[in-house]
């Protein structure tokens, strides 16, 4: 009997440790743990979110499962794309999330809390400045959009921290290019904690960066995907037209991994995502042009990888 109690105590403390590591709200977990079946793990009840976090459901079961209920409204979510030319897709996905946050605030009657978009000037020079008319057509209310173009990553982080410490914004988008050494694990942890304390969603938009450990709840890799055609009033599709944007969302950091990813279409009129089936042609398309340059992610704190062998051409003899 005493043995059983000791075992139970051990299990309880281990679960508490796991909960602490996993960033969950401790009180609720402890309650759950205490109520748990001593004989083993308990299945989660359907419909209850995994944690006590405030989330914004995105209306797509697959995506919401991936994000454990929806977009975290307190804390950091990382969105990254691999190459600069995909920056439009990642920025579009982040903008869509920003528009959803805005709408959620408006529905609560809190009209006019702006979205802050911090774009380090290197990022906005490489991938283009956010464009007011386009963003407006995309569903973002540009009447409450503030843009900041800090020169260095350090300034960008400082602005983000300042913004998270005042309760003025409904979402903060922080756009950084590459994996700079000044935004390492400890800085991301700091931002994440600030965002949780300030109860503001922080979307870290990492442009052409590689996977890097960070404190974000989730890291989503966004790739562009071919759009559907525009629907005609009679239900058929207009051949050869380009419809609403489609994203290929791959969860890189999530507790419920889905390596294949999801295809989502953003509808600016309804301001919501719709799941779509991938086009067979897109998967089969040749991803590489015949003579492409090496795909390199932007600079980071690490030295580059080893050069592949066999690329050296024979030099002509000098004499």
């Amino acid at each position: 009997m005493a043995d059983n109690a000791v075992q139970r105590e051990t299990v309880l403390s281990l679960r508490e440790t796991i909960a602490r590591i996993e960033n969950r709200r401790l009180a609720g977990v402890v309650k759950t743990v205490k109520a748990a079946d001593p004989a083993g793990f308990r299945l989660r009840q359907e419909g209850t979110p995994a944690s006590g976090r405030k989330v914004l459901p995105l209306g797509i079961p697959d995506l919401d499962d991936l994000l454990e209920g929806g977009l975290p409204l307190e804390g950091m979510t990382e969105i990254r794309n691999a190459q600069t030319r995909d920056a439009g897709a990642a920025a579009g996905f982040a903008t869509a999330l920003g528009a959803l946050c805005q709408r959620a605030r408006q529905q609560k009657g809190d009209d006019g809390a702006p979205v802050l978009w911090i774009s380090q000037s290197l990022a906005s020079t490489e991938a283009g400045l956010p464009y007011g008319l386009g963003l407006s057509a995309y569903g973002l209310d540009i009447r409450s959009l503030i843009l900041s173009l800090p020169r260095t990553v350090k300034d960008a982080l400082w602005i983000a921290e300042t913004a998270l410490s005042v309760s003025a914004f409904c979402a903060v988008i922080l756009e950084i290019r590459g994996n700079p050494a000044s935004l390492a694990l400890s800085e991301s942890r700091r931002l994440h904690v600030r965002a949780r304390a300030g109860r503001i969603p922080l979307l870290l938009l990492r442009q052409s960066g590689h996977e890097e450990a960070s404190s974000a709840f989730f890291r989503l890799h966004i790739e562009p995907a071919p759009a559907r055609e525009r629907p005609l009033p009679d239900g058929s599709m207009l051949c050869g037209s380009i419809g609403h944007p489609v994203f290929h969302v791959i969860a890189e950091k999530s507790r419920s991994p889905a390596p294949v990813g999801l295809f989502l279409e953003w509808n600016p009129h309804d301001r919501r995502f719709y799941p779509v089936e991938p086009l067979p042609a897109a998967a089969a398309a040749d991803p590489e042009p015949a003579h492409s340059v090496a795909r390199l992610s932007a600079s980071s704190g690490r030295p580059g990888g080893a050069e592949p062998l066999g690329h050296l051409l024979a030099f002509p003899r000098a004499s």
């Binding site: 920025a91 991938a127 283009g128 008319l133 407006s136 609403h244 600016p268 009129h269």
Partner: peptide, 10 residues
């Protein structure tokens, strides 16, 4: 404002 023919980044 609602035209889809304008890009999000310029």
């Amino acid at each position: 404002l609602a035209t889809s023919a304008r890009p999000q980044r310029l």
